[in-house]
Design a binder for these strands. Structure first.
Length: 293
DNA sequence: CGCCAGGTTAGAG
DNA sequence: CTCTAACATGGC
């Protein structure tokens, strides 16, 4: 079995990443067992399963699928680098956070916590949409049903790996096929609309790559069902624009409410004021603030 | 049972 | 541009 080592930055915590990945027992797109993450992804025209562990200060990637070309192996490693957010230099953020009352303790407690991402923009956008206006636990239930019903699977040994559904698969669904999965009519419609946008090529990760945040956001918001919150969330998880963050997020409102000892929901202006301090690092500030919620 | 949850849209004022 | 109702369902 081939193994590949991947160096990580000093400010990286595999444990924090694992904690995040273990968030829901309903997650089908990866497994965490004995400090080992396993997952399958599509690379080119094939599917690759792999495991990731952390030993001697490095990630160790083991490919479970035989016969991958060097190019495909490279793609797997590139995916993992993106997934674990290994290419962001957190030093400037930590310098800023160390001087901030709200963040100071959080960044100490969770030192090395990064944005566990979703390198697939379609997955990211759909996942964000599923999470609109419901609690996270139920969002995972919806995702579980969605993946079980429409995602491809890969059997490796006694392990079954699920892949996120493809846009082309979802684009041709009727809302009636999604209602039994506990989707609301609205979410069912949104799911199909988002899939159509990707399936017909109107939106793709490649076409947004490198765009300024505002432009990327505008393109995503053209899709019905994708508002400011959803677009920011997806851009945060896929491209890690450091200043992409869901300002309207209920969790963030609650953190600020608590911090300012308010007896009501903070206003949008009050939220903006708090986040002004984190200019350029709003996404990471959000990540750590969610930890306190 | 009631309130709220990782919101968005369409329509009115 | 801002405000509001409707959507809609589970978790706690």
């Amino acid at each position: 079995m081939s193994a590949i080592t991947v160096p990580v930055p000093k400010e990286f915590s595999f444990d924090e990443a694992l904690t995040f990945l273990k968030r829901s027992p309903r997650e089908l797109l990866h497994r965490v067992e004995n400090e080992t993450v396993s997952k399958a992804i599509r690379v080119g025209n094939t599917t690759a399963a792999f495991t990731v562990t952390f030993e001697k200060n490095k990630l160790h990637v083991r490919l479970l699928t035989d016969g991958l070309t060097p190019g495909q192996q490279y793609e797997v490693v590139a995916y993992i680098r993106e997934w674990f957010d290994l290419d962001t230099d957190l030093k400037p953020f930590y310098a800023l956070a160390d001087k901030d009352k709200l963040l100071k303790d959080l960044v100490k407690q969770h030192y090395g916590y990064r944005i566990v991402g979703q390198p697939d923009l379609y997955e990211s956008l759909t996942w964000a949409m599923l999470g609109q206006q419901i609690n996270v636990a139920f969002a995972y239930t919806l995702k579980q049903h969605f993946v079980e019903n429409f995602g491809a699977t890969l059997q490796h040994g006694d392990q079954k790996y699920f892949l996120f559904p493809e846009p082309a698969t979802v684009a041709v669904l009727t809302t009636d096929q999604l209602l039994p999965l506990q989707f609301s009519r609205q979410k069912a419609t949104y799911a199909v609309t988002i899939a159509e946008a990707f399936a017909n090529g109107n939106v793709s990760k490649e076409s947004l790559q490198g765009l300024p945040l505002q432009e990327a956001k505008e393109r995503l918001i053209k899709i019905k069902g994708v508002g400011n919150w959803t677009a920011n969330y997806a851009l945060m998880k896929t491209f890690r624009y450091p200043d992409a963050f869901p300002l309207e997020d209920a969790g963030l409102y609650n953190v600020v409410k608590k911090y300012k000892k308010l007896d009501r929901k903070p206003t949008a202006d009050e939220m903006k004021k708090v986040f002004k301090k984190y200019k350029g690092w709003e996404a990471y500030a959000t990540l750590y603030l969610w930890k306190s919620a």
